[in-house]
Nucleic acid binder design. Structure first.
Lengths: 177, 177
DNA sequence: TAATTGATTAGAAATGTATCGAAACACTAT
DNA sequence: ATAGTGTTTCGATACATTTCTAATCAATTA
Protein backbone atom coordinates (compact mmCIF):
# COMPACT_ATOMS: atom_id res chain seq x y z
CA UNK A 1 0.00 0.00 0.00
CA UNK A 2 2.78 2.34 0.97
CA UNK A 3 4.64 1.60 -2.23
CA UNK A 4 1.60 2.24 -4.35
CA UNK A 5 1.17 5.65 -2.81
CA UNK A 6 4.85 6.37 -3.43
CA UNK A 7 4.49 5.41 -7.07
CA UNK A 8 1.44 7.60 -7.50
CA UNK A 9 3.23 10.52 -5.91
CA UNK A 10 6.12 10.06 -8.28
CA UNK A 11 3.85 10.13 -11.29
CA UNK A 12 1.90 13.13 -10.08
CA UNK A 13 4.40 15.74 -11.09
CA UNK A 14 4.59 17.75 -14.27
CA UNK A 15 8.35 17.57 -14.61
CA UNK A 16 8.57 13.86 -13.95
CA UNK A 17 5.87 13.20 -16.54
CA UNK A 18 7.89 15.18 -19.05
CA UNK A 19 10.95 13.14 -18.22
CA UNK A 20 9.05 9.88 -18.54
CA UNK A 21 7.74 10.94 -21.92
CA UNK A 22 11.24 11.65 -23.10
CA UNK A 23 12.38 8.23 -21.88
CA UNK A 24 9.37 6.64 -23.57
CA UNK A 25 10.84 7.77 -26.87
CA UNK A 26 14.45 6.86 -26.12
CA UNK A 27 16.95 6.38 -23.35
CA UNK A 28 18.68 9.59 -22.38
CA UNK A 29 20.94 11.27 -19.84
CA UNK A 30 20.80 14.07 -17.31
CA UNK A 31 22.26 16.94 -19.30
CA UNK A 32 20.31 16.20 -22.43
CA UNK A 33 17.01 16.03 -20.57
CA UNK A 34 17.84 19.19 -18.63
CA UNK A 35 18.45 20.97 -21.89
CA UNK A 36 15.23 19.73 -23.48
CA UNK A 37 13.15 20.80 -20.51
CA UNK A 38 15.01 24.03 -19.74
CA UNK A 39 15.81 22.99 -16.20
CA UNK A 40 19.13 22.55 -14.41
CA UNK A 41 20.92 19.18 -14.31
CA UNK A 42 20.58 19.26 -10.53
CA UNK A 43 16.82 19.26 -10.83
CA UNK A 44 16.71 16.48 -13.41
CA UNK A 45 19.10 14.42 -11.33
CA UNK A 46 16.89 14.90 -8.30
CA UNK A 47 13.89 13.52 -10.18
CA UNK A 48 15.70 10.67 -11.84
CA UNK A 49 17.23 9.47 -8.58
CA UNK A 50 13.81 9.59 -6.98
CA UNK A 51 12.34 7.50 -9.77
CA UNK A 52 15.27 5.15 -9.75
CA UNK A 53 14.86 4.30 -6.09
CA UNK A 54 11.23 3.50 -6.78
CA UNK A 55 12.18 1.22 -9.64
CA UNK A 56 10.56 3.34 -12.33
CA UNK A 57 13.78 3.92 -14.21
CA UNK A 58 17.17 2.20 -14.39
CA UNK A 59 20.55 3.66 -15.10
CA UNK A 60 23.90 2.45 -16.33
CA UNK A 61 27.11 4.21 -17.23
CA UNK A 62 28.14 4.35 -20.83
CA UNK A 63 31.40 6.17 -21.40
CA UNK A 64 30.84 9.78 -20.44
CA UNK A 65 27.17 9.50 -19.75
CA UNK A 66 24.91 7.80 -17.32
CA UNK A 67 22.10 6.52 -19.45
CA UNK A 68 18.66 6.34 -17.91
CA UNK A 69 15.98 4.02 -19.26
CA UNK A 70 12.40 3.21 -18.39
CA UNK A 71 11.23 0.16 -16.56
CA UNK A 72 8.20 -0.26 -18.79
CA UNK A 73 6.56 -3.12 -16.91
CA UNK A 74 5.32 -0.77 -14.26
CA UNK A 75 2.96 1.04 -16.56
CA UNK A 76 0.97 -1.92 -17.74
CA UNK A 77 -1.19 -2.30 -14.65
CA UNK A 78 -4.67 -0.81 -14.70
CA UNK A 79 -5.20 2.12 -12.43
CA UNK A 80 -7.37 0.36 -9.88
CA UNK A 81 -4.44 -1.89 -9.05
CA UNK A 82 -2.82 1.20 -7.64
CA UNK A 83 -5.72 2.59 -5.72
CA UNK A 84 -7.24 -0.43 -4.10
CA UNK A 85 -5.97 -1.76 -0.84
CA UNK A 86 -5.07 -5.40 -0.96
CA UNK A 87 -7.89 -6.38 1.35
CA UNK A 88 -10.61 -4.96 -0.87
CA UNK A 89 -12.26 -7.44 -3.18
CA UNK A 90 -14.12 -6.06 -6.11
CA UNK A 91 -17.76 -6.53 -5.33
CA UNK A 92 -19.29 -8.14 -8.39
CA UNK A 93 -22.67 -8.35 -6.68
CA UNK A 94 -22.65 -4.59 -6.22
CA UNK A 95 -21.56 -4.09 -9.81
CA UNK A 96 -24.44 -6.22 -11.02
CA UNK A 97 -26.92 -4.20 -9.01
CA UNK A 98 -25.57 -0.97 -10.45
CA UNK A 99 -25.93 -2.33 -13.93
CA UNK A 100 -29.52 -3.45 -13.39
CA UNK A 101 -30.39 -0.05 -11.95
CA UNK A 102 -28.83 1.83 -14.81
CA UNK A 103 -30.68 -0.41 -17.27
CA UNK A 104 -34.10 0.11 -15.74
CA UNK A 105 -33.93 3.73 -14.68
CA UNK A 106 -33.78 6.62 -17.12
CA UNK A 107 -33.67 10.25 -16.06
CA UNK A 108 -34.52 9.15 -12.54
CA UNK A 109 -37.62 7.19 -13.50
CA UNK A 110 -38.29 3.47 -13.74
CA UNK A 111 -38.81 2.64 -17.41
CA UNK A 112 -40.49 -0.71 -16.77
CA UNK A 113 -40.99 -3.16 -13.93
CA UNK A 114 -38.59 -6.09 -14.49
CA UNK A 115 -40.20 -9.49 -14.85
CA UNK A 116 -37.19 -11.38 -13.48
CA UNK A 117 -37.64 -11.70 -9.75
CA UNK A 118 -34.02 -10.89 -8.90
CA UNK A 119 -33.99 -7.72 -10.98
CA UNK A 120 -37.42 -6.70 -9.70
CA UNK A 121 -36.12 -6.94 -6.16
CA UNK A 122 -33.19 -4.69 -7.01
CA UNK A 123 -35.23 -1.92 -8.59
CA UNK A 124 -37.87 -2.08 -5.87
CA UNK A 125 -35.18 -1.74 -3.27
CA UNK A 126 -33.82 1.27 -5.09
CA UNK A 127 -37.20 2.98 -4.79
CA UNK A 128 -37.55 1.76 -1.23
CA UNK A 129 -34.53 3.88 -0.28
CA UNK A 130 -36.78 6.93 -0.45
CA UNK A 131 -38.58 5.69 2.67
CA UNK A 132 -37.16 5.92 6.12
CA UNK A 133 -36.98 2.74 8.08
CA UNK A 134 -39.69 2.36 10.73
CA UNK A 135 -41.40 5.66 9.99
CA UNK A 136 -45.15 5.41 9.50
CA UNK A 137 -46.52 6.40 6.08
CA UNK A 138 -50.15 6.81 4.96
CA UNK A 139 -51.19 5.08 1.75
CA UNK A 140 -51.53 8.35 -0.10
CA UNK A 141 -48.06 9.37 0.95
CA UNK A 142 -46.64 6.04 -0.18
CA UNK A 143 -48.29 6.38 -3.57
CA UNK A 144 -46.93 9.86 -4.09
CA UNK A 145 -43.39 8.77 -3.41
CA UNK A 146 -43.66 5.80 -5.74
CA UNK A 147 -45.26 7.98 -8.41
CA UNK A 148 -42.00 9.89 -8.68
CA UNK A 149 -40.58 6.76 -10.24
CA UNK A 150 -43.41 4.94 -12.00
CA UNK A 151 -47.14 5.37 -12.67
CA UNK A 152 -48.10 1.88 -11.52
CA UNK A 153 -47.71 2.63 -7.82
CA UNK A 154 -50.23 -0.07 -7.08
CA UNK A 155 -48.11 -2.96 -8.36
CA UNK A 156 -44.96 -1.56 -6.85
CA UNK A 157 -46.53 -1.05 -3.44
CA UNK A 158 -47.90 -4.58 -3.43
CA UNK A 159 -44.57 -6.06 -4.55
CA UNK A 160 -42.65 -4.22 -1.88
CA UNK A 161 -44.87 -5.85 0.69
CA UNK A 162 -44.52 -9.24 -1.03
CA UNK A 163 -40.74 -8.95 -0.84
CA UNK A 164 -40.96 -8.12 2.84
CA UNK A 165 -39.55 -4.66 2.35
CA UNK A 166 -42.65 -2.99 3.74
CA UNK A 167 -45.42 -3.90 6.13
CA UNK A 168 -49.04 -2.76 5.91
CA UNK A 169 -51.24 -2.53 8.98
CA UNK A 170 -54.62 -0.74 8.82
CA UNK A 171 -53.58 1.66 6.01
CA UNK A 172 -50.29 2.36 7.80
CA UNK A 173 -47.14 1.43 5.90
CA UNK A 174 -43.64 0.98 7.28
CA UNK A 175 -40.31 0.26 5.60
CA UNK A 176 -38.66 -2.65 7.39
CA UNK A 177 -35.34 -3.24 5.63
CA UNK B 1 -2.39 16.27 -20.68
CA UNK B 2 -3.33 18.77 -18.04
CA UNK B 3 -6.28 16.66 -16.91
CA UNK B 4 -4.16 13.56 -16.64
CA UNK B 5 -1.76 15.31 -14.31
CA UNK B 6 -4.70 16.54 -12.25
CA UNK B 7 -6.04 13.02 -11.95
CA UNK B 8 -2.67 11.67 -10.89
CA UNK B 9 -2.32 14.38 -8.29
CA UNK B 10 -5.72 13.52 -6.93
CA UNK B 11 -4.81 9.88 -6.56
CA UNK B 12 -1.44 10.58 -4.99
CA UNK B 13 -2.71 11.30 -1.52
CA UNK B 14 -3.03 8.95 1.42
CA UNK B 15 -6.34 10.32 2.63
CA UNK B 16 -7.96 10.32 -0.77
CA UNK B 17 -6.88 6.75 -1.35
CA UNK B 18 -8.53 5.81 1.93
CA UNK B 19 -11.70 7.56 0.86
CA UNK B 20 -11.68 5.84 -2.51
CA UNK B 21 -11.26 2.48 -0.83
CA UNK B 22 -14.27 3.16 1.34
CA UNK B 23 -16.31 4.14 -1.69
CA UNK B 24 -15.08 1.06 -3.48
CA UNK B 25 -16.94 -0.98 -0.89
CA UNK B 26 -20.08 1.13 -0.73
CA UNK B 27 -21.43 4.62 -1.29
CA UNK B 28 -21.13 6.81 1.75
CA UNK B 29 -21.38 10.38 3.06
CA UNK B 30 -19.15 13.01 4.58
CA UNK B 31 -19.77 12.47 8.28
CA UNK B 32 -19.56 8.71 8.09
CA UNK B 33 -16.26 8.77 6.22
CA UNK B 34 -14.88 11.40 8.57
CA UNK B 35 -15.71 9.14 11.47
CA UNK B 36 -14.14 6.07 9.89
CA UNK B 37 -10.91 7.88 9.11
CA UNK B 38 -10.77 9.96 12.30
CA UNK B 39 -10.66 13.23 10.42
CA UNK B 40 -12.98 16.24 10.49
CA UNK B 41 -15.93 16.52 8.09
CA UNK B 42 -14.33 19.68 6.72
CA UNK B 43 -11.31 17.71 5.60
CA UNK B 44 -13.35 14.96 4.01
CA UNK B 45 -15.53 17.50 2.27
CA UNK B 46 -12.43 19.20 0.90
CA UNK B 47 -11.22 15.96 -0.64
CA UNK B 48 -14.57 14.85 -1.96
CA UNK B 49 -15.22 18.18 -3.65
CA UNK B 50 -11.84 18.03 -5.24
CA UNK B 51 -12.49 14.56 -6.56
CA UNK B 52 -15.97 15.51 -7.69
CA UNK B 53 -14.75 18.36 -9.82
CA UNK B 54 -12.35 15.97 -11.51
CA UNK B 55 -15.15 13.49 -12.17
CA UNK B 56 -13.74 10.80 -9.93
CA UNK B 57 -16.81 10.71 -7.67
CA UNK B 58 -20.43 11.79 -8.01
CA UNK B 59 -22.81 12.99 -5.38
CA UNK B 60 -26.55 13.22 -4.92
CA UNK B 61 -28.75 14.19 -2.03
CA UNK B 62 -30.76 11.54 -0.28
CA UNK B 63 -32.87 12.84 2.60
CA UNK B 64 -30.45 14.14 5.21
CA UNK B 65 -27.29 13.01 3.54
CA UNK B 66 -25.34 13.77 0.45
CA UNK B 67 -24.29 10.41 -0.85
CA UNK B 68 -21.00 10.14 -2.68
CA UNK B 69 -20.28 7.33 -5.11
CA UNK B 70 -17.38 6.31 -7.31
CA UNK B 71 -17.16 6.84 -11.01
CA UNK B 72 -15.61 3.45 -11.61
CA UNK B 73 -14.89 3.86 -15.31
CA UNK B 74 -11.90 6.02 -14.59
CA UNK B 75 -9.92 3.25 -12.96
CA UNK B 76 -9.99 0.80 -15.81
CA UNK B 77 -7.35 2.49 -17.94
CA UNK B 78 -3.82 1.15 -17.77
CA UNK B 79 -1.28 3.42 -16.17
CA UNK B 80 0.56 4.37 -19.33
CA UNK B 81 -2.60 6.02 -20.60
CA UNK B 82 -2.07 8.52 -17.85
CA UNK B 83 1.60 9.15 -18.27
CA UNK B 84 2.02 9.33 -21.98
CA UNK B 85 1.46 12.52 -23.88
CA UNK B 86 -0.95 12.09 -26.71
CA UNK B 87 1.73 12.51 -29.35
CA UNK B 88 3.86 9.61 -28.13
CA UNK B 89 3.31 6.29 -29.84
CA UNK B 90 4.45 3.17 -28.06
CA UNK B 91 7.52 1.93 -29.84
CA UNK B 92 7.07 -1.82 -30.34
CA UNK B 93 10.33 -2.04 -32.27
CA UNK B 94 12.14 -0.67 -29.25
CA UNK B 95 10.33 -3.10 -27.00
CA UNK B 96 11.39 -6.02 -29.15
CA UNK B 97 15.02 -4.95 -29.02
CA UNK B 98 14.89 -4.70 -25.26
CA UNK B 99 13.50 -8.20 -25.04
CA UNK B 100 16.15 -9.67 -27.30
CA UNK B 101 18.86 -7.97 -25.30
CA UNK B 102 17.51 -9.18 -21.99
CA UNK B 103 17.30 -12.70 -23.40
CA UNK B 104 20.85 -12.85 -24.64
CA UNK B 105 22.69 -10.92 -21.96
CA UNK B 106 23.10 -12.15 -18.42
CA UNK B 107 25.00 -10.25 -15.75
CA UNK B 108 26.32 -7.94 -18.43
CA UNK B 109 27.71 -10.71 -20.64
CA UNK B 110 26.49 -12.20 -23.90
CA UNK B 111 25.43 -15.77 -23.20
CA UNK B 112 25.50 -16.86 -26.84
CA UNK B 113 25.69 -15.33 -30.29
CA UNK B 114 22.18 -15.48 -31.81
CA UNK B 115 21.86 -17.40 -35.03
CA UNK B 116 18.93 -15.35 -36.31
CA UNK B 117 20.33 -12.50 -38.33
CA UNK B 118 17.93 -9.88 -36.91
CA UNK B 119 18.70 -10.82 -33.31
CA UNK B 120 22.41 -11.04 -33.99
CA UNK B 121 22.33 -7.50 -35.35
CA UNK B 122 20.63 -6.29 -32.19
CA UNK B 123 23.11 -7.84 -29.76
CA UNK B 124 26.08 -6.78 -31.86
CA UNK B 125 24.81 -3.25 -31.87
CA UNK B 126 24.47 -3.39 -28.11
CA UNK B 127 28.15 -4.24 -27.81
CA UNK B 128 29.02 -1.70 -30.49
CA UNK B 129 27.76 1.05 -28.19
CA UNK B 130 30.96 0.67 -26.20
CA UNK B 131 32.84 2.17 -29.11
CA UNK B 132 32.84 5.81 -29.98
CA UNK B 133 31.86 6.73 -33.49
CA UNK B 134 34.79 7.64 -35.78
CA UNK B 135 37.46 7.08 -33.17
CA UNK B 136 40.34 4.86 -34.31
CA UNK B 137 40.89 1.60 -32.41
CA UNK B 138 43.72 -0.86 -32.69
CA UNK B 139 42.82 -4.56 -33.10
CA UNK B 140 44.00 -5.43 -29.60
CA UNK B 141 41.91 -2.67 -28.15
CA UNK B 142 38.85 -3.86 -30.05
CA UNK B 143 39.33 -7.40 -28.84
CA UNK B 144 39.62 -6.29 -25.23
CA UNK B 145 36.38 -4.37 -25.36
CA UNK B 146 34.52 -7.27 -26.97
CA UNK B 147 36.01 -9.71 -24.46
CA UNK B 148 34.08 -7.92 -21.72
CA UNK B 149 30.98 -9.41 -23.31
CA UNK B 150 32.00 -12.70 -24.95
CA UNK B 151 35.07 -14.86 -25.44
CA UNK B 152 34.65 -15.24 -29.19
CA UNK B 153 35.81 -11.71 -30.03
CA UNK B 154 36.92 -12.97 -33.41
CA UNK B 155 33.45 -13.84 -34.68
CA UNK B 156 31.93 -10.74 -33.17
CA UNK B 157 34.51 -8.44 -34.67
CA UNK B 158 34.05 -10.00 -38.10
CA UNK B 159 30.28 -9.81 -37.87
CA UNK B 160 30.35 -6.16 -36.86
CA UNK B 161 32.25 -5.44 -40.04
CA UNK B 162 29.88 -7.61 -42.08
CA UNK B 163 26.90 -5.66 -40.74
CA UNK B 164 28.62 -2.40 -41.67
CA UNK B 165 28.86 -1.26 -38.08
CA UNK B 166 32.65 -1.07 -38.23
CA UNK B 167 35.29 -0.56 -40.86
CA UNK B 168 38.76 -2.08 -40.91
CA UNK B 169 41.67 -0.45 -42.67
CA UNK B 170 45.25 -1.67 -42.09
CA UNK B 171 44.59 -2.94 -38.56
CA UNK B 172 42.71 0.29 -37.72
CA UNK B 173 39.06 -0.16 -36.75
CA UNK B 174 36.36 2.53 -36.65
CA UNK B 175 32.76 2.45 -35.52
CA UNK B 176 30.65 3.96 -38.28
CA UNK B 177 27.03 3.80 -37.03
C1' DT C 1 -40.84 30.07 11.74
C1' DA C 2 -37.25 28.18 14.77
C1' DA C 3 -34.27 24.43 15.76
C1' DT C 4 -31.58 20.64 14.20
C1' DT C 5 -28.32 18.28 11.47
C1' DG C 6 -25.19 17.55 7.89
C1' DA C 7 -22.28 19.95 4.22
C1' DT C 8 -19.49 23.57 2.76
C1' DT C 9 -16.42 27.62 2.84
C1' DA C 10 -12.82 30.77 4.65
C1' DG C 11 -8.70 31.64 6.91
C1' DA C 12 -4.58 30.13 9.31
C1' DA C 13 -0.95 26.90 10.69
C1' DA C 14 1.95 23.20 9.47
C1' DT C 15 4.02 20.31 6.39
C1' DG C 16 6.04 18.78 2.19
C1' DT C 17 8.47 19.29 -2.12
C1' DA C 18 10.42 21.36 -6.56
C1' DT C 19 13.96 24.17 -7.88
C1' DC C 20 18.32 26.46 -7.99
C1' DG C 21 23.38 27.75 -7.28
C1' DA C 22 27.49 26.10 -5.51
C1' DA C 23 30.41 22.62 -4.16
C1' DA C 24 31.90 17.89 -4.34
C1' DC C 25 32.36 13.60 -6.96
C1' DA C 26 33.44 10.17 -10.73
C1' DC C 27 35.08 8.99 -14.87
C1' DT C 28 37.80 9.99 -19.28
C1' DA C 29 41.35 11.90 -22.00
C1' DT C 30 45.60 14.32 -22.57
C1' DA D 1 48.91 13.51 -12.63
C1' DT D 2 45.75 17.09 -14.34
C1' DA D 3 42.15 19.13 -16.85
C1' DG D 4 37.65 18.49 -18.64
C1' DT D 5 32.98 16.76 -18.66
C1' DG D 6 28.93 15.03 -16.77
C1' DT D 7 26.61 13.68 -12.26
C1' DT D 8 25.32 14.07 -7.61
C1' DT D 9 24.74 16.23 -3.06
C1' DC D 10 23.76 20.17 0.05
C1' DG D 11 21.49 24.11 1.82
C1' DA D 12 18.24 27.69 1.02
C1' DT D 13 14.09 29.44 -0.95
C1' DA D 14 9.61 29.50 -2.83
C1' DC D 15 5.47 27.43 -3.58
C1' DA D 16 1.67 24.15 -3.09
C1' DT D 17 -1.24 21.38 -0.21
C1' DT D 18 -3.34 19.17 3.81
C1' DT D 19 -5.65 19.86 7.92
C1' DC D 20 -7.92 22.22 11.44
C1' DT D 21 -11.33 25.60 13.78
C1' DA D 22 -15.00 28.56 13.29
C1' DA D 23 -18.50 30.43 10.71
C1' DT D 24 -21.96 29.92 7.18
C1' DC D 25 -25.20 27.43 4.22
C1' DA D 26 -28.95 24.15 3.03
C1' DA D 27 -32.40 20.91 3.88
C1' DT D 28 -35.55 18.87 7.21
C1' DT D 29 -38.42 18.52 11.24
C1' DA D 30 -41.06 20.28 15.08
Amino acid sequence: MKEKLELLKLLADQTRLEILNILLKEDSYVEKIACELSLTPATICYHLKKMESAGVVNCSRSQFYIIYSLNRDIFEKPLYELIKKDDVVIDTEEKYKKEVISNFFKYGRLTQIPTQRKKREIVLFEILKQFEIDREYGEKEVNEIILRYHEDFCTIRREMIAFGMMTRDHEIYKRVK
